[in-house]
Structures are given as structure tokens and as C-alpha cells.
Write a protein that binds this DNA or RNA. Structure first.
Length: 855
RNA sequence: GGGCGGCUAGCUCAGUGGGAGAGCGCUCGCCUCACACGCGAGAGGUCAUUGGUUCAAACCCAAUGCCGCCCACCA
């Protein structure tokens, strides 16, 4: 036993090595990108994690994907920039702080703006540090010297520059429109920030009298909004109401006169076919109101309470007002009926309050040019999507794109760089102006609105590299190569980066978009903290190590379907780490001077198992590479795992064990070469254990991240050798099977093989099957794969042979039936037919060997 | 309402036209001097349903049924 091997504990302990490796990688500058490097560049700007401070499965998946590519690209000779950062996440952070304040029994208003800002700063510092530590824990090889935060002064300047640039193009304007209003945040939010939830409400049928006699009945789930009604609409083709169009209805409880108009948006089949029109509080009503010049009444305050001066409902909450309105209508006999009604209601995705559509003056960004450039880039194939089908999701959304409400009425975020002087002039500038350029006034006030967080996120791939300055980083690293993310933010984020990248940089921000799966809880529900279904990746890392978590993540991330979390699969990769560890121990225990790493000059040599494993290694290597290149990482993991465990450990090391024990140089060559190569292939997926083991191999190894990716192994491919070794496997498995079925002891017994099997096959098979070769053996249980017989000193029965025979006969019957079918033989490709013929012949031979008369 | 994805072994998932796979779990035998986080041998599946295309279908087409997601201004 060599010294090196005795230094290695029997079991692998991830905790013992991971932190040390990360610190070494970082302090030796392995993550640092050099903008002046002559190597081809590979750039990824990591999506700013949401600043809630909680690491979740999404981060683990995303980080695994990004980091495996970073490491792979370094190994294939690229200068890699993997840029980290985090995001101010205005509305989310404001909500977190407000909740903290609520727990302390206070509010941001009581605290005041300045103190609130201090709280926010403290939060950012604390959470920013947490996020960074978590990314380190995951082994992310990020260039920390380039860490970016969306509230850094440089980044803020990028945001302001973009705003001004859009403004100068004439694309930013301010206008009143109907928006999604969150009454709790007291801010507008975008369509994409709404979560729809099913509500069980009541549909109320209300009679509206018509001037000059008669009436009509409308149906609504929100009777309180009738207080702001300014019209009634029916479908122009609805015979029931033809005579009423042009007349005037009288709004109950209020007495307002409501023009009755005809509009195609009204569904004849819904309710009564008559629609109360509330242009101030419903997007569809707003459209109808615009077409028919109906008055717009804002019936709600920013906190969602009723704004109906002079009416008894003024100041009530929406629900209170609804109850009272319904009571009053009932008292007046105007409530015709009530029906249970199920529909979807929008909630704020951050604070969960029910969204109120209302009219509000907001900042808007025109999207036409941005959208058209993105569509053009797409038709030129400048962005590749993985899986491809998500490109359609993106294009469908783009085509239906409307102007973007970029303003938010929050305390937190990038302030809109619009300033007004006391004389009413408006200035839009990147740097805050000291005086009005029109009149020289120094009495300037800044617009109170902040920007949608996604406005700044949209600039991420170039703002992080220094834009608008013409920096070395921007020149060297833009456009970047990848964005990997969850599909829920394709429209919120990915699409907007593509649009701004094309507009400001003239090129798409990344060449590839990878959409990874969502990890569900084991029972299929969403993983969520509030449901208690979340799984903390840190707990998994504690139990199984980062490598296991990452390997699992890579194995599921790009599978087409969302995946239910299955802890046993993570555990499986920890066992795999342990297997690699022990395989290394075995190889290192081989005595003598081991060959100093000389990948590329190794030769296959005379031994069957050596030639076989090198051929399999060549296959595994190309499979791993192909999986990474095609964003099907699950294929890479599967190929590496199967090779390392089921071929290298289970067969090669078992076959070559004695030679290794004897210090056989050829066996050492091959074993070290395979080990070296598989550690390289696995490094992107399992960086810690691979570097740990690789560093223990002879040859004064540096770091795997700086080692070359395996290539040029095709010369080892030897299909005839693989076929021969398949005989070894077949014989050994039959011997073991018979031993077990006969209840024979674990070792011992005799094996006679026909000379056609070959001496080397016989020797290896006998050793692995724990039997002795005996050319004189008489009788015994016949083998199927080759002419041969095995017998054991104790135990009896040939149940396995019987079962095998039956299986072969069934298979042969099927094959013969097929071959007897002239449709098949005439129409199927000839190679299929001859393959089946060969198989039938093999089955016949095997059946012959197993049949008693042949013994 | 529109679109997308899924339905394969007890569980979680691979498998895109010619002999049904993996991991975990289960049964049985093994502490064989790398590994019990292990080794070996097994059991277990009318590949959701129905119809179609084809010499041949888990795989292609159509419909249906569940499950999930995205998009959408029917109150």
C-alpha cells in the first residue's frame, strides 16, 4: 500500500475539502478574466438573484448551468468572464422592509424617507453578503473583482443614460391610462407582475331604469364600481337592445345619466348582454369609453378606498362599499338576482393585494422600434433558444407588445431623471442639473416616480461591462454568450435585454438562451416558503456536498419537463463522489513509480481490458462533450456516470486489479489515464471532488480548471475489442447467475470454455467469475454466450438455464415469425433484415448450447 | 379562451420508427485486502385511452382523458 493511498480516508467527506478548494481557486486568480487576453472570449453575466436573501432550488439549477459552462469553456481554451451581481429589486425589497417595520409596529411613513433609506442600505449590505456567500458555497467561479449592484453609482448612470436616450428618441412620454394599481404598494405595476387567482364571487344582476320608460339589467361582480359608471353598452347585433341604443339610462343610487352605446366588445351571451361601462376602473370599459367619448370618473383613492364625494359610500373600502351598495339596491328593488360566480382575480405578485385597475398618470416607453429590432434579430437566428420551443413563447409575446409602463410610485428604486423648474420647464438629464437650461432657475424638483426594476435589469449584459463608457470590458466581452433562466421571466427580462442590447449596442446581448426546468416539491406542488414545500439547497449541501447537488441539478435542469424533487437522486451523486474517491484510492495504491501524467501519448497495449476501457473512454468523452455543446447536460452526466461506475470501476478495475497490485506499468498507464480523463470530464459538474482527486494523482497537477478538455481520443475506438470484451461480460454474468441460482458458495467452481472463446477471454472471465479454468471438466451447466460449462463444488439446480432457454425460444419465435413475413423481408431495409437474421442465428446457437442433448 | 409541456417499473425520471432503460426502493446472497456511501444475483412495465399511418409504433398523425405551466381586457 503506497503512502498516498494510506493518507486518503476510506470515505469521501465533502465538508472536509470544499471550502478549501474554493478559497484556493479564488486566491490563485482562476476566476479573474483578462480583457486583453488573446484567447476567444466566453462571457456570462449572471442573473442578479432576487434580493430576498434566500437561496432556493432555482439558484442552484441556474448556478450549476452557468458554472459548468464557465469551467468547460476555460478548459477548452477560452478567456471566460463570469460576472456576478445582484439587483435592488425595488418592489420586493420595499415589501420586505415594510413587513419588518410592521412587525416592529411602525410604518415607513412614520419612519421617514431618510431612515427608511438607511434600513434599505443595511438590508442590501447584509443580503448582498449572504448572496455572495451562497454563490461561493455552490462553487460558482465568478470574477468577484467585477461584482455589480444595480444601485452602484456607475450602474445608476447607465440607467439614467438609457432613460435619456429613449426620451431623446421620443419614445418616453407621460400620459394617463388605465393601469394595474396595487393599493397596498400604492404603485402601478405591469401586466407581468400580476398573479391570477381563482375567486368565488357573486354575480349581481342590477336593473338600470331607462329615461322615457323601460329598463335594462346588467350583470357585475363588482357592484361598488357602478358608482363610477358613465355608460351602458350592448352588442350592436343584439336584437334585444336595438331600440335602446342612443337612449339614456339612469344610474341607480347616483342618478347620473348614462348613454347607452353599441360596442362589439360586449358579449351577447354573458350575463344579460348589457354591460355597465366604468372607464375609470376596467381596461375593456376604458376602451369602450374612448370609442364613445364617455366620461372617465376616478372612483377610488390610491389606497383602494372609495372616492365618491357626496355619496354615503365615500371613504369606505371596496368590500364595505360593495356590501352597502348591494343592500341599498336590494332595498330599492333594483337587485334582480345573485348567482355564484367563479373567475380569476389579479393579485400583486409581491404583496398579494388585489389589483385595482384605475386611471393614473404614468411614464410610458414606446416599444415599436425596440420590438421590431428584436423580431428582426430573431428571424436572423441571432439568438438560439434551448429548448427551441421557448422562442415561440417569446415571439408571441413580442408581437402583441404594448407600451411599457416604466414608472412606479415607490420609495425605492432609480428615480426618473426628469426635473421641473418653478417656471414649469422640464429637464431630462443623466446628471442632476443645478439650474434650468431654459430660464436659469435653481428651484428644481425631481419627478417623484422611480423606474420599474426591470428597466434597469434590461441593461444588465452591457451596463455591467461599463456602458455607456467605451470600456475594455465592453469591447472584449460584449456580446455575451449565454443567459440561463426560468421560463417565468422570459418576457419580463430576457426579451427586454434583447431589445435594449440591440438598441444601445447594436447586437443581441447573448447568443444562447437556456430555459431550465422548475423544481417542484416532491408532491408536485410549487416549492414555496409560504406553503412549507421549499427545500433549502444549503441543507442538501450539508448532507451530500455541493458536488452532489450540482450534478443532480445538471442532470435535471434541461430536461423538457418540470421535475419533482427527489432527494434520493442527490444522494446518488454523493455515492458517486465516494465511488470516484475509492477508485482513486485503488489506483494510487498500485506500487512502484507511477507514470507521470502523459495524456495523449498513452498506447492501448496488449491487454484486452486495456484496449476495451480506452475504447469506452473515447466514447464517453465524446458523449460528455456533445451533451454540453447541445445544452443537454443530462446526457453528459449520464455518460460520465455510466463510464466511471459501470465500466471503469465495475469491469476495468476488477479485471486489472491484480496487475495494478503487482505494479504493472501498462495497467498503471491506462488506469491513470482513464482516471485523469474522467476527472476532467466531470470537473464542470462536480468541481470539488474532481480537483481534490486530480491533485492527488502523480504529476504535480495544477488546477483542473486550467487543464485541457479531453480531446482526440477517437484513435482508441476499437469495436472488435468491445465485441470480444462483451463475451467476457456475458460469460461472467452467466457464471454468477448460475452460482446464485444453484445456491453455490460465493467462490469456487470450475469453468471449461471452448477454445474458440480465446485464451485471454477465458482467463479474465474465470478470474472475475471466481472459478478455475479446467479443460478436463466433464458435465456442468452449459453456457449460452459461448460454448462452455460451469460447475460448482456445492449447490444444485439449473433454474437459471431453464429460464434463459425459455426466453431465448420466445425471442426466436418472434424473430422467425417476422422473417417469415414477406411484407417485412421485402419492405424493411436490408440491414434491418440481415440484423434480425443474425440475431436469430445467435439465438439458435445459444439454444443449442443450452439444450440437454448438447451436454 | 389561446398556446405549450407531461402521462414509461412501487417512487423520481431517461429513452424520437426495428431486441423496454437508469437511480432509489424491494427480494436473495456476500464485511471478496478501493469502496457496506459497497459487491453480486433477481423480481417488477397490455410505455394514459381510442383510432390512424407503416412491413414495423413508447416513439409519427388525430381525438379523448387527467396533471402542470405560460399567455389573454367576458363584465
Amino acid at each position: 500500500m503506497s503512502e498516498t493511498e494510506t493518507q486518503m480516508p476510506k470515505a469521501f467527506d465533502p465538508q472536509a475539502i470544499e471550502a478549501g478548494w474554493y478559497a484556493r481557486w479564488e486566491s490563485d486568480g482562476l476566476f479573474r478574466a483578462d480583457a486583453s487576453s488573446p484567447k476567444p472570449k466566453f462571457t456570462m453575466c449572471f442573473p442578479p438573484p432576487n434580493i430576498t436573501g434566500e437561496l432556493h432550488m432555482g439558484h442552484a439549477l441556474q448556478t450549476a448551468i452557468y458554472d459548468l459552462l464557465a469551467r468547460y469553456k476555460r478548459m477548452t481554451g477560452h478567456e471566460v468572464l463570469f460576472l456576478p451581481g445582484y439587483d435592488h429589486a425595488a418592489i420586493a425589497t420595499q415589501n420586505v422592509i415594510e413587513k419588518q417595520l410592521a412587525r416592529e409596529g411602525t410604518t415607513k411613513e412614520e419612519l421617514g424617507r431618510e431612515k427608511f433609506d438607511e434600513r434599505v442600505q443595511a438590508w442590501y449590505e447584509q443580503v448582498g453578503a449572504t448572496i455572495i456567500n451562497q454563490l461561493r458555497l455552490l462553487g460558482a467561479s465568478m470574477d468577484w473583482s467585477r461584482l455589480r449592484f444595480t444601485m452602484d453609482s456607475r450602474y445608476v448612470r447607465s440607467v439614467m443614460t438609457a432613460f435619456v436616450a429613449f426620451y431623446e428618441r421620443g419614445w418616453i412620454y407621460r400620459a394617463p391610462r388605465i393601469v394595474n394599481w396595487c393599493p397596498r404598494d400604492r404603485s402601478a405595476i405591469s401586466d407581468l407582475e400580476i398573479e391570477w387567482e381563482e375567486h368565488h364571487d357573486t354575480l349581481y344582476f342590477i336593473r338600470y331604469p331607462v329615461e322615457g320608460g323601460g329598463d335594462l339589467v346588467i350583470a357585475t361582480v363588482r357592484p361598488e364600481t357602478m358608482l363610477a359608471d358613465t355608460g351602458v353598452a350592448v352588442n350592436p347585433t343584439d336584437d334585444r337592445y336595438q331600440s335602446l341604443v342612443g337612449k339614456t339610462a339612469i344610474l341607480p343610487l347616483v342618478g347620473r345619466k348614462l348613454p347607452i352605446v353599441a360596442d362589439g366588445l360586449v358579449e351577447k351571451d354573458f350575463g344579460t348582454g348589457a354591460l355597465k361601462v366604468t372607464p375609470g376602473h376596467d381596461p375593456m370599459d376604458y376602451d369602450i369609453g374612448q370609442r364613445h367619448s364617455l366620461e372617465i370618473i376616478n372612483g377610488m383613492h390610491p389606497d383602494g378606498s372609495m372616492n365618491v364625494p357626496g355619496l354615503p359610500y365615500d371613504g369606505l373600502t371596496g368590500l364595505e362599499a360593495r356590501r352597502m351598495v348591494v343592500e341599498d339596491l336590494r332595498a330599492q328593488g333594483l337587485l334582480i338576482k345573485e348567482e355564484p360566480y367563479t373567475h380569476d382575480v389579479g393579485h400583486c405578485d409581491r404583496c398579494h393585494a388585489v389589483i385595482e385597475p384605475l386611471i393614473s398618470e404614468q411614464w410610458w416607453l414606446r416599444m415599436e422600434t425596440l420590438r421590431d429590432k428584436a423580431l428582426a434579430a430573431s428571424s436572423l437566428g441571432q439568438v438560439r433558444w434551448h429548448p427551441e420551443r421557448y422562442e415561440r413563447t417569446y415571439l408571441d409575446w413580442l408581437r402583441g407588445l404594448r407600451d411599457w409602463n416604466i414608472g412606479r410610485q415607490l420609495w425605492l428604486g432609480h428615480r426618473v431623471p426628469v426635473y421641473h423648474c418653478e417656471n414649469g420647464h422640464q429637464l431630462v438629464t443623466v446628471e442632476p442639473p443645478s439650474r434650468c437650461t431654459e430660464c436659469g432657475s435653481t428651484a428644481l424638483t425631481q419627478d417623484p416616480d422611480v423606474l420599474d426594476t426591470w428597466f434597469s435589469s434590461a441593461l444588465w449584459p452591457f451596463a455591467t461591462l461599463g456602458w455607456p463608457d467605451d470600456t475594455d470590458d465592453l469591447t472584449a466581452f460584449y456580446p455575451t454568450n449565454l443567459n440561463a433562466t426560468a421560463r417565468e421571466i422570459i418576457n419580463l427580462w430576457v426579451s427586454r435585454m434583447i431589445m435594449t442590447g440591440l438598441e444601445f449596442m447594436g447586437a443581441v446581448p447573448f447568443s444562447d438562451v437556456a430555459i431550465h426546468c422548475q423544481v417542484q416539491a416532491a408532491d408536485g406542488r410549487r416549492m414555496s416558503k409560504s406553503l412549507g414545500t421549499g427545500v433549502d439547497p444549503r441543507a442538501l449541501i450539508d448532507k451530500y456536498g455541493t458536488d452532489a447537488l450540482r450534478a443532480w441539478a445538471a442532470s435535471v435542469a434541461m430536461s423538457s419537463q418540470d421535475v419533482r424533487f427527489d432527494e434520493s437522486r442527490v444522494e446518488g451523486y454523493r455515492r458517486f463522489s465516494n465511488k470516484l474517491w475509492n477508485a482513486t484510492r485503488l489506483v494510487l495504491s498500485s506500487p512502484g513509480t507511477p507514470p507521470v501524467g502523459k495524456p495523449g501519448v498513452i498506447e492501448a497495449g496488449e491487454h484486452l481490458e486495456d484496449r476495451w476501457i480506452l475504447s469506452r473512454l473515447a466514447y464517453a468523452s465524446s458523449a460528455v462533450t456533445a451533451g454540453i455543446e447541445s445544452f443537454t447536460f443530462q446526457d453528459s452526466i449520464a455518460a460520465a456516470y455510466a463510464f466511471a461506475w459501470n465500466e471503469f470501476c465495475d469491469w476495468y478495475l476488477e479485471a486489472a486489479k491484480e496487475r495494478l497490485r503487482d505494479g504493472d506499468a501498462a495497467a498503471q498507464d491506462v488506469a491513470y489515464f482513464c482516471l485523469d480523463t474522467i476527472l476532467r470530464l466531470l470537473h464542470p459538474f462536480m468541481p470539488f471532488v474532481t480537483d481534490e482527486l486530480w491533485s492527488r494523482l502523480p504529476g504535480g497537477n495544477d488546477y483542473l480548471m486550467r487543464a485541457a478538455w479531453p480531446d482526440g481520443l477517437d484513435r482508441f475506438i476499437a469495436l472488435d475489442t468491445e465485441a470480444t470484451f462483451a463475451l467476457v461480460i456475458g460469460i461472467v454474468e452467466e457464471v454468477r447467475g448460475h452460482r446464485q441460482a444453484a445456491g453455490a458458495p460465493a467462490r469456487g467452481g470450475k469453468l471449461r470454455l471452448d477454445h474458440s472463446a480465446g485464451r485471454e477471454v477465458a482467463t479474465i472471465a474465470a478470474r472475475l467469475g471466481w472459478v478455475e479454468l479446467d479443460d478436463e471438466l466433464e458435465g456442468g451447466i452449459p453456457l449460452a454466450v459461448v460454448p462452455g460449462w460451469v460447475s460448482f463444488p456445492a449447490g444444485s439446480g439449473d433454474a437459471r438455464r431453464q429460464a434463459e432457454l425459455k426466453r431465448f425460444k420466445d425471442d426466436l419465435a418472434k424473430a422467425e415469425a417476422k422473417l417469415a413475413n414477406s411484407e417485412f423481408t421485402s419492405k424493411a431495409p436490408s440491414e434491418i433484415v440481415s440484423k434480425l437474421e443474425e440475431r436469430a442465428a445467435e439465438l439458435r446457437a445459444a439454444i443449442d448450447r443450452l439444450t440437454p442433448t448438447a451436454i
